[in-house]
């Protein structure tokens, strides 16, 4: 318990420090409404993908196929939209097709989630290998479907998902809050959530406690798949296009964000609140440096350094607590 709290405190302190530092460097520009709103548009993509990564890491797994399945979902939806709806169309008919396209996109990522679940829970392939295989396969299907081209020119109702405002609140942010809240409820207030943490800590003990590990892992990867599908709809709408290799740099970033947020790579530990704090820290750093006209690649390097720093501080604090028992 002490460890969990100390992590939240460390993250909150870092968050405040980063916020203060960026405010000091950028002046009032940083806290202007426009800047905060643009951050709220940028965070959700990586945020929802990180949630998809986090839930698998809690079971001591990993899901390398999230970006590939997100792209295939987006391509499926975009293929339906570009073939059946004109970009400037409106009315009930196109709206229905758009809804159908989103449903189709989400089902594709759900099916990939089930395939991962089957490989990991039934065949008992290690998660990193299973999802590495599906990642390459799914990307291959995307390339075959699009011949490597970009699908663009999506209709108006779809663009709302990524660019719309509801009462001043960006639509992607609303989706992210819903996704994070749902994940938090599942993890903290349902038996499934309990089992996910138990499998991550000790799968054999969990099995002998009468838990159906197979079913739990299936659901874990299904949720992970659907979340990458939701992220896909936001990405497709924001870019107004879909392609086989969009967002590939996000893959390692989602692991980075999860670990920074206190998700243990060995499984069993990690909370949605920690992940959200970590995502806000990363977004503050990248927006702040962007306002300072810092090279975006330096931002990437700084994210990496922050991750190592946090892990080192965690390690040292655990060591200190062990050597200085109260």
């Amino acid at each position: 318990m002490a460890r969990k709290n100390s992590e939240t405190i460390v993250l909150s302190v870092i968050l405040l420090a980063v916020f203060g530092l960026m405010w000091a460097l950028n002046g009032s520009q940083f806290v202007q409404f426009e800047n905060i709103q643009s951050m709220a548009f940028q965070l959700p993509e990586l945020g929802i993908l990180s949630l998809a990564m986090m839930i698998t890491m809690l079971t001591s797994g990993i899901n390398l196929s999230i970006i590939a399945s997100a792209n295939l979902s987006a391509i499926t939806a975009a293929l339906i939209l570009t073939n059946f709806v004109k970009p400037d169309a409106s009315g009930i008919g196109p709206m229905a097709i758009a809804a159908g396209a989103v449903a189709a996109g989400l089902s594709v990522s759900a099916i990939i989630g089930l395939l991962n679940g089957f490989l990991i829970a039934v065949v008992e392939v290690s998660p990193i290998l299973a999802t590495l295989g599906t990642m390459i396969l799914v990307k291959g299907v995307s390339i075959v479907l699009t011949r490597g081209y970009t699908l663009s020119g999506l209709p108006e109702p779809i663009l709302f998902i990524g660019n719309g405002l509801v009462a001043g609140m960006p639509m992607p942010m609303i989706l992210f809050i819903l996704c994070a809240a749902f994940m938090a409820v599942v993890l903290n207030h349902t038996p499934l959530g309990n089992y996910i943490y138990m499998i991550g800590s000790n799968p054999i003990a969990c099995f002998f406690a009468g838990v159906n590990n197979t079913a739990v892992l299936f659901r874990t990867y299904l949720i992970s798949g659907i979340y990458s599908g939701i992220a896909a709809m936001i990405m497709m709408s924001r870019f107004n296009s879909a392609k086989a290799d969009y967002g590939e740099s996000y893959l390692l970033m989602t692991v980075l964000a999860s670990v920074l947020g206190g998700v243990s790579a060995a499984g069993g530990f990690g909370r949605v609140s920690g992940l959200v704090l970590a995502l806000v820290i990363l977004q503050l750093v990248s927006s702040g440096l962007n306002l300072l006209n810092v090279n975006p690649f330096l931002t990437i390097a700084i994210w990496g350094m922050i991750l190592i720093l946090v892990m080192v501080v965690n390690y040292l604090s655990v060591r200190y607590q062990e050597t200085h028992p109260r």
Binding site: L252, V259, L298, A301, W303, G304, M305, M311
Partner: peptide
């Protein structure tokens, strides 16, 4: 975790 972080550091720098 270490090598994901250093990948970003090395490549970014």
């Amino acid at each position: 975790i270490t090598t994901i972080a250093t990948l970003n550091v090395y490549y970014g720098l």
